[in-house]
């Protein structure tokens, strides 16, 4: 098969580029300090509750996924996301973490508050505190997306996303407390107990 030169892109109606796997060597862009979103505060007390998010990723055979890149994205403790036109804030709920040999990941961050559903028009609609998760790895041609919710949050009962998930699978999205300030959610790529993956 020849490899033709790509045609010049039309000015309008472009199509988003195709994703490709991050492969097994993505660790060249792994910066372990990124797993702690509170790192810029140093010894100062950050606003809100500092928490640990952990979990293990397993594949369809139950084996540890030891070469994955996990990213988190979530609102700040007030439920706010950065204003693209405002000043850069000290805290933003973005982190990146490499899974270990046992498939585990571990983030240190600030617990997000209830966040707006969309813009000001429906500012009274709040989402339950949650963390967007993205998993990139060898064997994932496109990253997998899901959300982590916190067990016991009253807003879980009315969250517009959580409530579209069939009740019997909702548990795959709800982290449980496993220690002081520590929340755990295991992720299953495939098979029994498969995580509810989301097309975002």
């Amino acid at each position: 098969m020849p490899t033709p030169t790509p045609e010049a892109a039309p000015a309008q109606g472009l199509v988003a580029s195709a994703h490709q796997t991050a492969g097994p060597y993505w660790h060249l862009v792994d910066f372990p300090e990124w797993a702690d979103t509170t790192r810029h505060f140093g010894d100062r007390l950050p606003p809100g509750e500092r928490i640990v998010l952990t979990g293990r990723i397993t594949d369809g055979a139950g084996a540890a996924v030891a070469d994955a890149m996990v990213e988190i994205w979530h609102a700040d403790p007030m439920g706010e996301y950065p204003d693209p036109n405002g000043p850069e804030k000290e805290f933003q709920g973005y982190g990146r973490c490499a899974t270990q040999a046992d498939g585990s990941f571990r983030f240190v961050t600030l617990k997000p508050g209830p966040s707006p559903l969309d813009g000001e028009a429906r500012a009274n609609l709040r989402q339950a505190p949650h963390v967007a998760l993205a998993v990139f790895a060898r064997g994932l041609l496109t990253h997998l997306c899901t959300r982590l919710y916190f067990e016991g949050e009253p807003l879980n009962e009315t969250d517009p996303v959580l409530n579209t998930v069939p009740p019997e699978r909702r548990g795959t999205l709800i982290a449980r407390p496993t220690g002081p300030g520590t929340w755990t959610l295991d992720l299953r790529l495939q098979g029994e107990g498969e995580t509810v993956w989301m097309e975002i």
């Binding site: 796997t21 594949d59 369809g60 055979a61 084996a63 996924v65 994205w73 979530h74 609102a75 996301y81 950065p82 693209p84 850069e88 933003q92 709920g93 973005y94 966040s115 707006p116 559903l117 969309d118 813009g119 989402q127 949650h130 967007a132 790895a137 060898r138 064997g139 994932l140 041609l141 997998l144 997306c145 959300r147 517009p160 996303v161 579209t164 998930v165 699978r169 790529l189 495939q190 098979g191 498969e194 995580t195 509810v196 993956w197 989301m198 097309e199 975002i200």
Partner: peptide, 28 residues
């Protein structure tokens, strides 16, 4: 054709999410 997808692809269809502020915002 790509062997590593065999045990790593979800078998359930993905849940299509409406886009909220979580998806329309991004780290800076």
């Amino acid at each position: 054709g790509y062997g590593s997808t065999r045990l790593r692809h979800p078998q359930q269809p993905p849940l299509r999410l409406p886009h909220t502020r979580t998806e329309t915002s991004a780290p800076r």
